[in-house]
Write a protein that binds this DNA or RNA. Sequence first.
DNA 1: AACACTATACCGTCCGGTCGGTACAGTGCG
DNA 2: CGCACTGTACCGACCGGACGGTATAGTGTT
Lengths: 189, 189
Amino acid sequence: MPRPDSARDRILDAFQGLLIASGERAATLDAVAAAAGVSKGGLLYHFASKDALVDGLIERLEAFAAADDERMRAAPEGTVDYVIRTSVEEGTPFDEALIAVSRLAQGSHEKARTTLAAVRARWETAIAADVGDPAVARAIMLVSDGLYYNSTLLGAFGTTDSRDGAMDELLAVLARLTPTASPGPAAAS
Amino acid sequence: MPRPDSARDRILDAFQGLLIASGERAATLDAVAAAAGVSKGGLLYHFASKDALVDGLIERLEAFAAADDERMRAAPEGTVDYVIRTSVEEGTPFDEALIAVSRLAQGSHEKARTTLAAVRARWETAIAADVGDPAVARAIMLVSDGLYYNSTLLGAFGTTDSRDGAMDELLAVLARLTPTASPGPAAAS
DNA sequence: AACACTATACCGTCCGGTCGGTACAGTGCG
DNA sequence: CGCACTGTACCGACCGGACGGTATAGTGTT
């Protein structure tokens, strides 16, 4: 075994991966167990029920979200830049957990929905504080949501290379929204 | 019986409603039949399989989308105004069908995904034609997507009354993005 | 009778969950 | 040391119910 508590993480990874790749329907206990290289009994040893598995994933997301929150506040390029850019940064553990939980939220899983709403709210307040105008902040948040919608539903909208250019372009457009100050990180002053 | 061909529509409505309210998982044949006030046998008389039911819903969406497309091109307030406003106009048959199909697309239903992408593409080209700058068009499309993401996942973001005001505010903010020409034929002043 | 449709019984499969069991690493103690 | 026992990690057969789907008998209208 690679690491002591790796089985739990492997199961969570498998669950997440199945949710992202094939949706809630396909993320059955058997499928998760198989993907994690564990037997069904083994899975249920670590997570006593499917609800427990879901809770485990949500907790994981919350942990990532807390870390992201700190990084966001410390982002040198400003909050807007940070939030927009990380909206499509596929492959990070945080993004994957977020998309997986959003699949869950499409069902009627209440906790998944509220957790997602909380993460979103945190972003929006941070942007509002950075940008000043709450209406502008909402517009920017909606762009971020749209970015997620696209990567979640349609699977990105370009290759990684073209995406970076597209991101710069998008941020340049968005900079027009902030009336005050220059299109910069809204430095302190 | 109310109307001759109402059974089919009622079934589609029920399927749609279940998808929106409780996700793909809950939209089983039994549940759909019960919600439509039809027996399971009755449901399967109209739709030979669950795939046929899904196809029926997608066809319905395509019909609505075609009608919407025409309305959009003829919209007096301009394409942007039309697309943004209809993004949260909950309750219209078109919106409901769209959200229902997007639930399907969260699973691995390929046709649902491509249909959604087609609708989105149609909007984006229309906006691009109206606005000029493709980068601005994409930003606006992302806001529309974000609006859908919100109404889909988090369930709107305000009451109907406050939403109209919020919409006006949002459109005013978005008007700043179009550098050329006036902020659109809307409201003016 | 023919047709459009409904209702129910049923089938095989899959799903979430239980349960009995295995392997093994301790650990306290005589 | 040897032995009894405990806890942790895991396996896989199995169960009841739900699922998608079939088959068929029945009903009301024309």
